[in-house]
Amino acid sequence: TEVDLHLGDITIKLKDVSEEIVKRAKELFKNGWSAEFVKKWIEEAVK
């Protein structure tokens, strides 16, 4: 499945990412993480 994760003005296309990771990524962004950091976190999380 593909998900578009909207973080501010940046959209990250996610492939084969669990709902849990998407939820967590949104929380991290809301908590002040930059979109770049969230993207890196996701990449690490799906390895």
Rank of each mutant, 00 (worst) to 15 (best):
N31V: 06
E44C: 15
N31L: 15
D16I: 05
I12K: 02
T1W: 14
E20T: 10
K40V: 08
V22R: 06
W33P: 00
R24I: 08
K23W: 13
K30I: 11
I12F: 04
V17K: 01
V46I: 15
L14C: 06
E36G: 07
L28W: 05
K15D: 06
K15I: 13
H6Q: 13
K15E: 07
S18Q: 06
E2C: 11
V17C: 05
V46Y: 06
I10F: 12
G8Q: 04
A35C: 06
F37L: 12
W33I: 05
S34F: 05
F29H: 04
E19W: 13
V3P: 05
D16P: 03
A45Q: 14
H6E: 13
V46G: 05
K30N: 14
W33C: 08
F29T: 01
E20A: 13
V22F: 13
N31P: 00
V46E: 04
S34I: 05
A45M: 15
R24D: 04
W41H: 00
A25R: 00
K40I: 12
V46W: 07
V38G: 00
G8E: 04
G8T: 03
G32Q: 01
T1K: 13
S34N: 07
K40F: 10
K23I: 10
E43N: 08
K23G: 07
V22L: 14
K40Y: 12
L14I: 09
F37M: 14
W41N: 00
K39V: 13
L5D: 02
A45I: 11
L5Y: 02
K23R: 12
E27F: 12
V3E: 10
V38I: 13
V3G: 07
K15Q: 09
E20R: 09
K13H: 14
V46R: 06
D16G: 15
K39I: 15
V3I: 14
E27N: 06
A35W: 15
E2G: 07
K13E: 05
W33E: 06
D9V: 09
H6P: 06
L5E: 03
D16K: 05
R24H: 12
S18Y: 05
L7C: 05
T1M: 14
K40H: 10
E2S: 12
V17D: 01
L7N: 02
G8M: 04
W33S: 08
I21V: 07
F29E: 01
A45E: 12
G8D: 05
I21Q: 03
E43G: 06
S18F: 06
